[in-house]
Design a protein around this nucleic acid. Structure first.
Lengths: 227, 227, 227, 227
DNA sequence: GATGAATGAGTATTCATTCAT
DNA sequence: TATGAATGAATACTCATTCAT
C-alpha cells in the first residue's frame, strides 16, 4: 500500500519521506558558553509566552524563570516583541524548510499534500501553545489593529504564513496541471486546508496517530465526505 | 433546479428559505424611552469594539460616541466584558435561530448543509469585525488564559460555538444515517467545515455572490477536489 | 527726588507705579470646588518641582503631597511636562502683563527701565526656585537637545522669554529715539540687562531692598562703573 | 593707540598681550602609548558630551567613538561624572592661567578688564557646547540638587567659577583704588560682567570680531548706555 | 436614572557600573 | 591593561470601575 509505505519519521533535524531522508540545519544550534544566557532567556520566554500569551507575559516573570537580570534580556533582544519574534523564527525556520523540501520532491501531488499535512499537524501540535499565542496576536490583520505587535512585525509574521500556505497552493496547482485535481481556486483551497489543520490542532482533534489524522484530512479534501 | 430554487433572503428579522418564511424575534427590540440610553450605548459599543478590538476599545470612546455619561454604562451593564457579551448575544441569537430552523426542516442533508453554509457566510460577513474580535479573545481556550475575558465568560462563548457547530454535526450524522454521507468523524468534519467558513470570511475570500461561495465550499466538502 | 518718588508696591494682583495703579487679573483665580484637586496638584507640583527640578521630581511625590490619586493628575494635565508648563504660565502671565503695562506708560525711558528692572527682580526673587528649574531645562537651546522638554514645549518657553526681553529692547529703542540713550545694539543690551538681573537673583546678590538693587543695576547700565 | 596696540593672540598654549608672551603648560600633554586610550576616551567624551549633554550622553556612545572597551573607561576614570570633570579641568586650567597672568600684569585696570573680557569671550566661544552643558548641570546650586552631579563635584565647579570671577573682582577693586572706577559692590559688578559675557556667547550675540564685542561690552560697563 | 470626578494597580525599558577573564 | 557580559534600580502613564450628588 502506498499510504502505509509512508513510514516517515520526523524530529527536529531529520525527516524521512519513505526512503528519502531530508536533513535540515537549525540556527543557533551550537550554544557556546557566551550564548548560555541567551538560551536560558529564550527557553524561559517560550514557557511564559506559551502560558500567558504575549500581553500578559511579563519580562519579570521571564527573567525569574531564566535566572538572569533584567538588563541581560535587553542585551540580547531589542524588546519583548523581538524576543517573541526570535522564538517564532527559530522554530519555524526548520519547519518551513521541510515543507519546502517536500514541495520540491518529485512525489505525486497527492502524496506531497498528504506529507505536508502531516508535517503541519506535527509541527503545530508540538508548538500549539506558542502558535496559539501568535495567531491570537495576528487576528488584527487589516483592522485598525488590536494586536500588541507593531505593524511592521505583524507584516513579517503574515508574510511567513502567506509563504507557507503558498507552498500548498503551488502543489495544488501542480495537481491541476497533472490532471489529478479538478479546476478550482487554489488559493481558497490552500487556505481552506490550512484552516482545517489549525482547527484540528487547536481543538485537540488530532489523535495520537498524527499520520492517520493527516490521511483523513487529506482524504476528505480529495474525495469529499459524500458517498 | 433545486439549487436555484433556494432564493433565500436574509435580513435582521426574517429569512426566506424558498417559500418557507422563518421569522424570529429580537430581544430588546422595542426601545422604550427608558431603554434609549441602553441602545445608544450598545450601538456605540458595536462600532468601537469592531474598530478597536476589546482590549483597545475604551469606555471613554464608547460614551463619547453614545453621548452619555460614564456611570450610565455601568447602570445597564455590569462591566465592559458583559457589555461586549450582550452585543454578541443579541446578534447571534437570531442567527442561531435560523440555523436551528433550517436543521429542523425536512430538506435533504446536503441541501441543509448548503443552506446552513450560506447562512454562516452571510452572518459572519455581516458581522466580520465584531466576530473577529470575539475569536481573537477566545483563542485563549484552555490556557491559563491570555484573554481579556473571564474564564466563565469564555465558557459561555465557547458553548455558543459548540452548540452552533453541533447543529452542523447533527446534519452530517443525518446524512450518514440516510446513506448520502460516508462514515466519518462528524465532530471533526463539522469543525473542519466551520473552520473553512470562518477562514474564507476573515481572509476576504468570500466573493460578492455568497451563494456561489457557499456552493463551492459545500461541493468541495462533499465531492473533494480530486478529479 | 524722582527715584524716591517711585514708591511702588507689588503683590500678586496690583502694582503701584507712583500714583498709577496697575491692576491685573489672574487666570483660575476663583477655585470652585471642582477645581479643588487641580489646585492641590498645582501647589504640590510647585513645591516638588522647585525642590527637585523637573527630571528628578516624580509624579508619585507630587500626588503624595497633593493627597490625591495618580489618575487625577492625568485628568487635569496631559502629562508631567504640561503640568510644569501650566505652573509657569499661570505665574508668568500676570508678570508679563505688568511689564507690558509699564512699557505702555508715558514714563521717560530711564524710569521705565528702572521700574521694569524692579519688577523683574521682584518676580524672579519670588519664583527663583521654579524659574531656576525652567532655565535649567532651557539651556539646551539650539543643541541636539538635552532637555527633558519636547521641542515644541521648549519653543513655547523660549518665545515667552524672547517676548519679555523684547519689551526691554523696545524701551531701549525708545530711549535712543528720544536721545537719552546712545546708539547701540538694543538686542544685545536688552539681553545683557536681562542676564545681569537673572544672575543677581540666582547668586543671591539681591538685597532685601529690591528697589535699591534695581536702581544700582539700572545706574550701572546707564552711567557705567567708570569714574 | 593703546587699544589697537593690543594685538593679542590666543591659541592653546601661548597668548600674546602686546609684546608680552604668556606661555602656559597643559596637563597630560605628552601622550605616552599607555596614555593613548585615555586620550581617545577624553576626545570622544568631549564630542559626545558637547552634543548630547551630560545626562543623555551614554558611556556606550563614548566607547563606540573612542573605539575602546567599556571597562577601560573605568580604568582611567572613576565614573562618568569624573570623566566630565577631567574634561573641564584640562580645558579650563590654561584659560584660568591666562586670566591670572593678565590680572598680574601692570596694565591699567581698564585695559586689564578689556583684555580679560576678550579672553573670556574667546574661550567660551571655543568651548560653548561643553560649557553650556556644564552650566546646565550647575543651575542646581543650593537646591536639594537636581543636577546629575554630586554635591561635592558641584562644589568643585562652583569654586572654579568663583575663583575666575574673583579675578575680575580684584581688578575692579584695583580700579577703585586707583580712582578710575567709582565706588561700587565689586562682587556684584564682577558677576554682572561675567553674566553678560556668558549670555552673549550662548545667545550667539558674539560677532566674528571678538575684540570688537569685547570692547563694546567693556565700554558699556565703564561708560554706560546713557547719552 | 444620569452623571463624571476620583482612583490606583500594573510594566517595559535604559544605562552606569562591576568584575571575572 | 583591556575587555564586555551581566546587572537592577528607577518611573510615567492608562483606563475600568466606583460612588456621591
Amino acid at each position: 500500500m502506498i499510504d502505509s509505505a509512508w513510514a516517515s519519521f520526523y524530529n527536529d533535524n531529520v525527516m524521512y519521506l519513505g526512503e528519502v531522508m531530508i536533513i535540515y540545519s537549525r540556527e543557533n544550534e551550537i550554544s557556546t558558553d557566551s550564548q548560555n544566557k541567551r538560551q536560558q532567556i529564550l527557553e524561559a520566554a517560550y514557557v511564559v509566552f506559551s502560558r500567558k500569551g504575549f500581553h500578559r507575559a511579563t519580562v519579570d516573570e521571564i527573567i525569574a524563570l531564566a535566572d538572569t537580570g533584567k538588563g541581560t534580556v535587553y542585551n540580547y533582544f531589542v524588546n519583548k516583541e523581538q524576543l517573541f519574534y526570535t522564538l517564532i523564527k527559530e522554530r519555524s525556520t526548520p519547519f518551513e524548510q521541510i515543507l519546502s523540501e517536500i514541495a520540491k520532491t518529485g512525489l505525486p501531488p497527492l502524496d506531497k499534500i498528504r506529507a505536508m499535512v502531516k508535517v503541519f499537524l506535527q509541527f503545530y501540535s508540538d508548538n500549539a501553545d506558542l502558535w496559539r499565542v501568535l495567531m491570537h496576536e495576528l487576528r488584527g490583520l487589516g483592522s485598525e489593529g488590536y494586536s500588541s505587535f507593531s505593524e511592521e512585525q505583524q507584516e513579517k509574521y503574515q508574510q511567513r504564513f502567506r509563504d507557507t500556505i503558498g507552498l500548498l497552493q503551488v502543489v495544488f496547482q501542480e495537481g491541476i496541471t497533472q490532471g489529478v485535481i479538478r479546476e478550482c481556486d487554489t488559493n481558497r483551497v490552500a487556505y481552506g486546508l490550512f484552516s482545517v489543520i489549525v482547527m484540528m490542532v487547536f481543538q485537540h482533534l488530532v489523535g495520537d496517530d498524527v499520520e492517520a489524522t493527516a490521511n483523513e484530512i487529506t482524504s476528505v479534501f480529495f474525495y469529499g465526505v459524500g458517498q
